[in-house]
């Protein structure tokens, strides 16, 4: 009898190796057929003593449009915890194929600021396997604590969709929620995203997923052009909300149409203040000024 201990990794896993392994796994599954299990691995993965490179932090802050303060941006923490999260999805007993998963939603609680001198402990696990009208979705939960502390300073829940994968015992939701018609409001900002946006974010986040890097590598995975990282877009929106958000806040984003590169993205940020004049929350929505399609929307709110 073995107890489901958390898997403590000696060091942060390498994303590139994970992607290679994922590709091999996908090929293997195509050959052997999937062992259709509808159970998520119970173990969490944990890495302790993660240090932040200040050069990498500064480059990230500059790319996203954050001031290079000593406080780690919430999106940067997502990026450093991302390989750990991916390592859970990369397990052989994880029932969905990692490659081609679509990031549907992301929800972060930044409870207290973390600074670059903090040594970080982080855990990641998967939960909440459930149906979706076009596949199966799952939540990846990552938590980050300052070295040895029990207190979670940062918690992120990323919801991914495995399109076209239906597992036994997991029902599709019967009612498809009606999508409200989107009428683009007056934009408060216009982003000009160059064709190298994906590569630039890959360089600071370490997420070299081929769909973001170039037209060719994206086409190999069935995309017509490369697309911007969802977390790049969400992090820029968070930066655009500005310092009013303080150091503890929630940050939620829902992704819709992907942003193909290069392109222009229109954005509206609407801020609401409480009766006493302090900042309550800012909602953001982004769309294509050409087609009017909504790319993503979300909220940053006081915690």
């Amino acid at each position: 009898m073995t107890l489901a201990q958390p898997v403590i990794l000696a060091e942060m896993p390498s994303l590139s190796k994970l992607y290679v392994n994922a590709a091999a796994q996908a090929a293997r599954r195509r050959l052997l057929g999937t062992h259709d299990s509808a159970v998520l691995p119970a173990e969490s993965h944990e890495v302790r003593g993660v240090r932040v490179g200040v050069e990498n932090l500064t480059a990230y802050q500059h790319l996203i449009g954050e001031t290079a303060s000593d406080v780690l941006p919430a999106g940067f923490i997502h990026a450093i915890a991302f390989p750990l999260a991916m390592s859970v999805l990369n397990r052989d007993d994880f029932p969905l194929p990692l490659l081609g998963m679509i990031h549907l939603r992301n929800s972060v609680q930044q409870r207290s600021p973390l600074v670059f001198t903090d040594v970080l402990d982080m855990t990641a696990r998967v939960e909440n396997l459930r149906g979706h009208r076009s596949g199966t979705q799952v939540d990846v939960v990552a938590e980050v604590r300052p070295g040895g502390s029990g207190e979670v300073y940062w918690r992120g829940v990323s919801t991914y969709l495995s399109k076209g994968v239906f597992l036994p015992g997991i029902d599709k939701p019967t009612a498809v929620p009606p999508r409200a018609d989107f009428q683009p409001p007056d934009p408060t900002a216009l982003w000009h995203l160059g064709v190298d946006t994906g590569r630039a974010y890959a360089a600071v986040s370490g997420d070299f997923n081929p769909i973001h890097l170039s037209v060719l590598s994206a086409k190999a995975l069935g995309m017509r052009r490369s697309i911007a990282h969802g977390m790049y877009l969400a992090s820029r929106a968070l930066a655009d909300v500005g310092p009013a958000r303080g150091d503890s806040f929630t940050w939620d984003v829902e992704f819709e149409a992907p942003v193909f590169l290069p392109s222009r993205v229109a954005l509206e940020i609407a801020t609401e203040h409480s009766g006493s004049g302090s900042w309550k929350h800012s909602r953001f929505v982004a769309w294509s000024p050409r087609s009017g399609r909504r790319h993503f929307s979300g909220t940053v709110a006081a915690l």
Partner: peptide, 22 residues
């Protein structure tokens, strides 16, 4: 969440095991 151990013994299979092992 206090610690991984606490998480573990409070989630499905871990809880049952922890109970059995005292």
């Amino acid at each position: 969440m206090a610690d991984t151990y606490a998480q573990l013994v409070n989630s499905g299979p871990g809880r049952n095991l922890a109970r059995k092992l005292g």
